[in-house]
Amino acid sequence: MLVSALIIFAVFLLIFGLVVFFDVRKAKKHNQKYHFGRAVTAFLLLLPATLFAFFFVLLPILYSLGYGFTDYYLTKPNATEFVGFDNFKAAFEEIAEGGDLAKAIKNTAIFVVVVVPLQIGLALLLALFCNNKNRGTVIFKVCFFAPVTVSLAVTAYLWKEILTGSETGLMNQFLALFGIPAQDFLRNDDTAMLWIVVASAWQGCGFQMLIFLSALTGIRKELYEAARMDGCNAFQRFLRVTLPGLKPTLVYIVITVFIGACRIMVQPYLMINVYADRNITISYYMYEQVFTSYRVGYSSAVAFLMTIFIGTITLIQRKFLGEKKR
């Protein structure tokens, strides 16, 4: 550990030294004076955050990547050996054979594709609904935001109770009012994922609503008035003033919600409680690989693949949604 800390510090120093070196060169080129005192201050200010990031972000990532190339078995850490690309090969074989990983990817993909537009759309609707100065709306804001403040485990359990298969379940009692027979929502392969989507959109959208709300207040009132004078009706104003005004926020929200959705695990795990075809997601699969099958090396390889995949998609989203720079 001490060795790695020293190495990290050395790397940090090296990077910082390079930055200073190039800055000095640039300053010389433009005939400006370079202030070493400021560089030292900057160095000291950057140090704590950098060390934190190295130890708690970069180091685990590097370790995890390293494990991906070993046969690290949770109960036999001392027998670990380097196995090259075997784990990655195994992962691709699993996908090709339609094994658990393939099902996990399919479930995760369905979840992401449905939950991202649903949650963001819901958040936008709620924000538009709350975006006025009537005193009553603060109550709605609190209600919509409340689920965000509640622990994921608690809300998962809450939804599990609502959707329980027995006739006493809240949802089934409600359906009974319309004469619909009791359903077992979470044990049904077709509806389980749908309800997981609903539960997580419900839990998450309050946060995005808040971000949308603050972005909405940033759109100037005169723009709406100008649009009215230009002949826009309410819907056209939304389309041509509100949406463009929200665009930078929207990009941020799409990316963060997408990344969050890719990592979905708590709701499928707690709402259904068994590791089954209908609810495994990629994160859930990795978790099972480590804590049930003890295959840390293999799980690390999968995690690494997933990181690359999410990173790629995020870059693509940024390219298509982001502001075009002139």
Binding site: R220, E222, E225, A226, A227, M229, R240, V241, P244, G245
Partner: peptide, 13 residues
């Protein structure tokens, strides 16, 4: 009618 605002109110995008 057409209106010109003090703050211009041009559509920024």
């Amino acid at each position: 009618m057409a209106m010109v605002f003090q703050s211009y109110a041009l559509y920024p995008h």
